[in-house]
Computed example of a mutant assay.
Amino acid sequence: MRPRAWRLIATLSMVAAVLGLASCSSNVRRVSEPAVSIQQLTVRADGSWSLELRLQNYSSIPMQFETVALDVSVGGEAAGHLQQAVNYSIGPETADVVTVAMQPSSTAKIIVADVLAGGRALPYELKGTVTATPEDKKSRPFEVSGRSTLNPAPGLSGVLR
């Protein structure tokens, strides 16, 4: 091949590579299932709980989180149903925390008291729906579920993180 042909092939290859990279960086508007977890559980003096829920937006666009409706279990036992309006806007691919109150079942209170007294981990499970509105879209419910554990927070009485 002649040098001029090689230059043409090299130039065309370079243009194709640049166009390929440019298409990778396009603004894809992806709506993904959000996630919910308990960041902190605080036992109040009256026996109710204050839950700091971490709302995770995995979408590439902002979402307005409207309500959470969750069945909460601790230590394998039903703690109760949590239904609350949160009305919180969360940016793309980020998370934020909202605080909600919950009146747990008697069994759940005993389990948490035992865990706190023994300094052990508390397994929990959340199942339900989060209603959210992706930017410029319609509101819709997202099914969520998750399992994790909370541990006593050193130096903070009645707090699990």
Rank of each mutant, 00 (worst) to 15 (best):
A35W: 08
V36M: 02
V36S: 04
V36H: 00
V36R: 02
S37K: 00
S37A: 14
I38N: 00
I38S: 00
I38L: 05
Q39V: 04
Q39I: 01
Q39N: 13
Q39R: 15
Q40G: 06
Q40P: 04
Q40A: 10
Q40R: 15
Q40H: 07
L41V: 05
L41P: 00
L41R: 03
V43W: 06
V43A: 07
V43E: 07
V43P: 06
V43L: 05
V43C: 08
R44V: 12
R44D: 15
A45E: 14
A45M: 12
A45Q: 13
A45P: 15
D46H: 13
D46L: 14
D46T: 10
D46I: 10
G47W: 12
G47E: 09
G47L: 15
G47V: 13
G47P: 10
S48P: 07
S48K: 15
S48Q: 12
S48W: 08
W49N: 08
W49K: 12
W49T: 10
S50D: 13
S50H: 12
L51G: 09
E52I: 13
E52C: 10
L53I: 08
L53Y: 06
L53R: 09
R54T: 14
R54N: 15
L55E: 10
L55P: 12
L55V: 10
L55N: 07
Q56D: 14
Q56R: 11
Q56E: 14
Q56G: 09
Q56A: 15
N57V: 08
N57A: 09
N57Y: 11
Y58C: 12
Y58H: 15
Y58T: 15
Y58E: 09
S59K: 13
S59E: 11
S59P: 10
S60E: 00
S60N: 04
S60Y: 06
I61G: 03
I61W: 01
P62K: 09
P62T: 05
P62D: 12
P62V: 08
P62L: 10
M63K: 13
M63G: 04
Q64M: 07
F65I: 02
F65P: 00
F65T: 02
F65L: 03
F65C: 03
E66K: 05
E66H: 06
E66G: 05
E66A: 02
T67P: 10
T67G: 10
V68T: 07
V68Y: 06
V68R: 03
V68G: 03
A69N: 12
A69V: 12
A69Q: 11
A69C: 11
L70K: 01
D71K: 09
D71A: 07
V72N: 00
S73C: 07
S73T: 08
S73E: 07
S73F: 06
S73M: 13
V74Q: 01
G75S: 06
G75W: 00
G75H: 04
G75N: 04
G76P: 06
G76T: 06
E77F: 07
E77P: 03
E77L: 11
A78W: 02
A78I: 03
A79G: 07
A79D: 04
A79R: 02
G80Y: 04
G80H: 04
H81V: 02
H81T: 08
L82R: 00
L82W: 01
L82P: 00
L82A: 00
Q83E: 06
Q83A: 11
Q83F: 14
Q83Y: 06
Q83I: 06
Q84M: 08
Q84S: 11
Q84N: 09
Q84Y: 05
A85P: 07
A85Q: 11
A85M: 14
V86M: 05
